[in-house]
Amino acid sequence: MKKGILWDCHMHSSFSADSDTPMENMVLKALSLGLKGVTFTEHLDPDYPSTPESLDFSLDLFSYRKELLRLQEIYKDKIQLRFGIELGLQPQLEKYFRKLTKDMPFDFVIGSSHVVHGYDPYYPDFFEGRKEFRCYMEYFESILENLSVYDDFDVYGHLDYVVRYGPNKNHEYSYGRYKDILDEILKKLISMNKGIELNAGGYHYGLGEPNPCIDVIRRYRELGGEIITVGADAHTPDKIAWEFVKAANVLNDCGFRYYTIFKNRSPEFLPL
């Protein structure tokens, strides 16, 4: 990769509960792809619903940072490695997260919705016995609930994450069908000077679109949104920089001439 998007800003390793890949393996794959830099964004989802099949989304921040610092030193002349986190937002966690982001020197903070009123849409019981439309609406409403109480993040992650796991995925989903609430979310984020991400995970989850879908990304730009990061949401090396050529084309088609990376919580705008 010699041009286009040269940073992957949403990446997980074995410090996240849903990955078993050593961090160095992710770094080596990124190097082999010619990336200029990556931002690790390990999961932290306190108060995650406890079920027999659920994972423990706590995070050993000390060990995570220690390993990242070690790799930063080893690879300092080859690739930039930045310290990020993906916070699983829920309204009751507001004070906990504020203290965390004040105390830790993150480069980048993604705020994401994984748990909606005690359920993660990853599991079928979120949809059980309910219409898909209602489930998707509840997910978007929960984003507004989070935004009403918490603002110490840089971008909101995979805004339509819920469609990855719906009974019909995105076959009956579109920006137009949820326009009113999606516009409310986008306008709120812009008013807070927060960004969104183009999460290429939608491609490797078989949606044929990123998360959020292309029309939502276009609408964010139309409304005046400027901050947009790009990440593959990789949990294994083979997914790093997934469909980044396609992602660059999407951003261009939506009116962007740049993408965004973060250092010390400050945005940097890089040409596509």
Rank of each mutant, 00 (worst) to 15 (best):
V38F: 10
S58Q: 09
Y165R: 01
E132A: 05
L68T: 01
K66Q: 12
R130W: 05
R134K: 05
Y96G: 00
S63W: 03
F57C: 04
Y173F: 12
Y178R: 07
L68R: 04
Q92S: 04
P52H: 10
F108D: 09
K95F: 00
H117W: 09
E67Y: 03
F57A: 07
S63C: 03
D56E: 10
K66F: 13
D45T: 07
Q72W: 09
Y175N: 13
S58H: 07
F57V: 02
F108S: 03
D47Q: 11
D60V: 09
F106S: 00
Y122N: 05
G111I: 15
R164F: 02
G157Q: 11
P167L: 00
G157W: 12
E132Q: 04
F40L: 09
L44I: 11
G157H: 10
I74E: 11
D47V: 08
Q90G: 02
R65K: 13
Y175H: 11
E42L: 03
S174F: 07
Y150I: 07
V116Y: 08
S54D: 13
E172N: 12
T39G: 14
Y150T: 02
E172P: 04
G34H: 06
D47T: 03
N170H: 12
L159Y: 12
M104Q: 06
F133P: 05
T51K: 15
E67P: 15
Q90C: 05
F62P: 00
R134L: 01
L87Q: 03
S148D: 09
L87P: 00
D60P: 12
D77E: 15
H117Y: 10
T39Y: 13
V115S: 11
S174G: 02
V163E: 11
E86C: 08
P121T: 05
F108P: 14
D77N: 14
K99C: 01
E138A: 13
E172W: 15
F40D: 07
F108H: 06
Y64F: 08
R98Q: 07
S174D: 07
Q80D: 15
S50M: 12
R98F: 04
Y139N: 10
F153T: 13
R177M: 05
S50D: 06
E53A: 06
P105Y: 00
